[in-house]
Design a binder for these strands. Structure first.
Lengths: 395, 395
DNA sequence: GAGATTTTTGCAAGCGAGTGCAATTTTGAA
DNA sequence: TTCAAAATTGCACTCGCTTGCAAAAATCTC
C-alpha cells in the first residue's frame, strides 16, 4: 500500500543543495594553504533536475518533460517559459532516467574482436558517426573469439539495456541470440554469416570475391596457386575459400598449396614461410590468395624482404578487404573490396528499423557485392583492364 | 536549439506489460504459416526484475539488492536463496536503474577525432580492454576538431552521466572543462596538453622526441633539414616542432624548409610535393621530420614512388608515434615511439583514481618518455647503434 | 542463560523523468 | 456570444534499483 506523497509546494527539495547552488566555493579566505586542488574538491556537484526547471518556469514537471519530448503537446507560451528556465539553469535531461522508464537506452552495443586489422577501425568510425547522426551512441566491448568470453561480454552489454547490438567479426552462441531476441534486442552480425532466428547478417559476397580471384589467377596463367586461410571457424574464411576453390575448379585447376594464417600477423608470417621458404621455383606457388589484407601485407613482406622474391614478378599476391594500406604504393595490393561505408550504412538502416518499427522490419541477411580491385601485386591477364591510375582520390 | 529525439513508438511501452510478464509466448500453435520472423515478433519481451526474484526467493527486494551489491551485508542462507532464484529466472540487475540512484554510470566517455591515424585504434583497443577489466565501459563519440562540434558532443556525453571522460587528440573549451568539473566528472586529455583546472593531461615528451630527431639528423651530417608540421593548433604539433627547432639550434642549424601537413594524408601529400617536387638536389631537403607516422608514410610514398628518390639514400625520413605499420619492412620507418600501452595504463589509473577517490587524486600532468626508434628510413650517424634487428617480437 | 552486541532484514522513501487520465484552457463553429 | 471539440496542463503513478533507519535475529560475553 502506497501513501500519496503530498508535495509541499514550497518544498525544500533535497537537503541543502538548492540553496548553495552556484555560490559555494570556499568564500575566498586567501588562505595560504588552500591550493587549487582543495578548492576544486570543495565545489558542490551541481545537478539540475526537471523539478527545478519546472519551479523556475512556473509550470509542472510534466510540462518540462513534454517540452523535451519531440511529439508531445506543449503550447508556445509554456515552451518558451521552459526554454528560458532550462537555459538559465543549464538543464539537460538525464538520459539514464529517461531510459529507465522507456525501457531502452539509445545505446548500441558493439562487440569487436580486434582493431589490428584495419578494416575494423574504419567500420567503427563509420558506424559510430552514422549512429551519432541518428541520436544513438556506441558502447564498445572488446572480445576475442573465445566463445565463453563473447557470451560473458554480451551479457554485460545487455545489462546496459542497449537498444541494439552489433557484433563485428564475432559470432554468437545460439543461446545468446535467443536471449537477445527474448529481450527484444535486435542483433546484427557484421561480417559474419550465421543461421539463427532473428539475427541479421551483413556480409559481402565472400564466395564471389574468392571466385573472382581464382578467375584472375587462372586467366593470368598461374599454375601453382596457393591459399593462406583465415581463422577456420570464421564464415568469411569458409566462404572465401569455397568460392576460390570453386573458381579454380571451373578453370580445371586445384589448389597447389594451403597454409593457415588464422587472420593473425604472426601466423600469417609462419604460413608464408611454410609455403615459400627454401623451395625451388617449381616447388613454390606462383600466386597466392590471402584471406584478408591484414595477412596479405605480412605475406608480401616475407616474400619481398625475407625471401627476395618479386611481387608480382615471381609471385602474385591478392588479399581481401581493401583496407586503406592496400592502396599505399608500397604495397599496391590487388584485393577484393569490402565497402565499409556501405556495409555500415546497411547495418545501421536495418538495426534502426528493427528498433523503431520491429513489426515491419525484415531480418533477411544482407549481402553486398565484393568487386575485385586490380592493383599491382598480381599479374594482370592480357585483355583485362589494367589498374586504372586510381581516381584522383586522396590516399 | 537541439532537442533529443525519442523513438517514435511510444505507444506500447507502459500499457499491458506487467500482467503478461513472463507467461506469454504464443503457446506453440505449430501453425504452418507461422514463420520464424512472425514468431519472434510476437514474443513478449521478458524482463525480470528484482521484485520477482525477491518473491521467488521469499525475501525482500532489499535482500536481493544487497546480494548484488559487493560490500553489503547478507547472510549465507539468504544469499543462497537469492542466487538460486536469480539463476532460475535469469535475472541480471539493470545497470541504468542502479546508475540513476548512485548518480553515476560505469561508463567512460571517449571523444576521438579520427581513426585513420593508426595510433588511435591501438589506444581505443587498449583503453577499452583496460577499463573493461575494471568494470567500466567506453562510450565512443567521434568528433572532428571543429570546436563547436566538440563542445556539443561533450554535452551529449555528459547527458549519459558518464563517470569520466577521455578525449583523445581533441581539446576542450575551458567552459566545458569547467562544466565537467562542476559535474564532478574527471577529464583526461589524452595526447593533448592544455592548461586548465582539474583536467589531467597525458602526453609523451613531445619536445624531447623532436629534439632527439634533430640530434639524429645533425649527427648524421644532414644540412638541409625540413619539417612537415601537423595541425597547427595541436599541442603535439607545437611541442614536437619546438623541440626539433631547439635541437637544430643546439647544433647550430636552422630549418631549411617547412610545410604543413595538418595531420592529414591529403595535406601531407601536398606538403611533400611542395618541399620536393621539381627541385634540384641542392634545392630540396636531405632530411625531413614529419610530425606523425600517418603523414610520414604518405611523404615516403611521394618521395619514392612519385619522385623516384631513395630513402634514406637521398632523403632521410623520420616520423612520430611508432604505429604498427612503421615497423613493416616496406616502410621501416625511423620514428619516435609513443607507447600506447603505457599511456593508456596511466590514463586509466588516473581516471579511476579521480572517480573512486577524488579526495586524494592528483591532477598533475603525466608525461611519458618518447624514445627514438632507429630503423632504416633515416641515415644513421657513425657510432650510433644501428637498428637492432627488432627483437623477435611479432610484426 | 540474560543482557549487550553485532548482523541481517524489511520497510519505505527516493533517484530523474515519462505518460494515462481527467481537468482545464483554448480554439472553432454556428 | 455560446457550446462543442481540440489542445494543453497537472496529478500521480511508474520504471528498477539503492539505502537510511529501525526492528528482528543471530552472536557474543561473563
Amino acid at each position: 500500500m502506497r501513501r500519496p506523497i503530498t508535495p509541499s509546494a514550497h518544498g525544500t527539495i533535497g537537503t541543502p543543495a538548492p540553496m548553495m547552488r552556484g555560490l559555494s566555493r570556499t568564500c575566498g579566505r586567501g588562505g595560504v594553504t588552500l591550493d587549487d586542488t582543495q578548492e576544486a574538491r570543495s565545489m558542490t556537484i551541481e545537478k539540475v533536475t526537471m523539478a527545478e526547471v519546472a519551479a523556475k518556469a512556473g509550470v509542472s514537471r510534466s510540462a518540462v518533460s513534454r517540452y523535451f519530448t519531440p511529439g508531445a503537446s506543449v503550447s508556445k507560451k509554456t515552451a518558451e517559459k521552459v526554454r528560458l528556465a532550462a537555459e538559465a539553469l543549464g538543464f539537460r535531461p538525464n538520459i539514464l532516467a529517461r531510459s529507465l522508464i522507456t525501457g531502452q537506452s539509445r545505446i548500441i552495443g558493439l562487440v569487436i574482436a580486434y582493431l589490428e586489422n584495419y578494416f575494423y577501425p574504419e567500420v567503427l568510425e563509420k558506424l559510430s558517426k552514422a549512429l551519432q547522426e541518428r541520436g544513438y551512441h556506441v558502447l564498445v566491448f572488446m572480445s576475442s573469439q573465445g566463445s565463453e568470453t563473447v557470451d560473458d561480454v554480451i551479457q554485460e552489454i545487455l545489462d546496459y539495456q542497449v537498444a541494439g547490438l552489433v557484433t563485428a567479426s564475432v559470432s554468437l552462441s545460439s543461446e545468446l541470440s535467443t536471449r537477445c531476441a527474448a529481450l527484444g534486442v535486435p542483433v546484427v552480425l557484421f561480417n559474419r554469416a550465421q543461421d539463427g532466428k532473428g539475427v541479421t547478417c551483413v556480409t559481402s559476397d565472400n564466395a564471389d570475391g574468392g571466385r573472382q580471384v581464382a578467375r584472375l589467377f587462372t586467366a593470368a596463367g598461374h599454375r601453382r596457386i596457393a591459399y593462406v586461410a583465415g581463422w577456420e571457424q570464421a564464415s568469411t574464411q569458409r566462404d572465401r575459400e569455397a568460392g576460390f576453390l570453386q573458381g579454380l575448379a571451373e578453370a580445371g585447376q586445384t589448389l597447389f598449396a594451403r597454409a593457415v594464417g588464422n587472420y593473425e600477423a604472426a601466423a600469417a608470417k609462419a604460413a608464408a614461410r611454410q609455403l615459400f621458404a627454401g623451395k625451388s621455383e617449381a616447388e613454390r606457388p606462383d600466386a597466392v590468395f590471402v584471406a584478408n589484407d591484414h595477412m596479405a601485407f605480412v605475406v608480401m613482406d616475407v616474400l619481398r624482404f625475407e625471401l627476395g622474391l618479386k611481387v608480382p614478378g615471381d609471385v602474385s599476391v591478392v588479399g581481401f578487404d581493401d583496407v586503406p594500406p592496400a592502396a599505399w604504393p608500397a604495397y599496391d595490393l590487388t584485393t577484393v573490396r569490402q565497402d565499409a561505408e556501405t556495409m555500415v550504412a546497411r547495418t545501421v538502416e536495418r538495426l534502426l528499423a528493427q528498433i523503431e518499427t520491429p513489426a515491419e522490419a525484415s531480418s533477411e541477411p544482407i549481402r553486398m557485392p565484393a568487386p575485385l580491385v586490380l592493383r599491382g601485386s598480381a599479374r594482370i591477364p592480357e585483355g583485362w583492364s589494367p589498374p586504372e591510375p586510381e581516381p584522383p582520390q586522396e590516399i
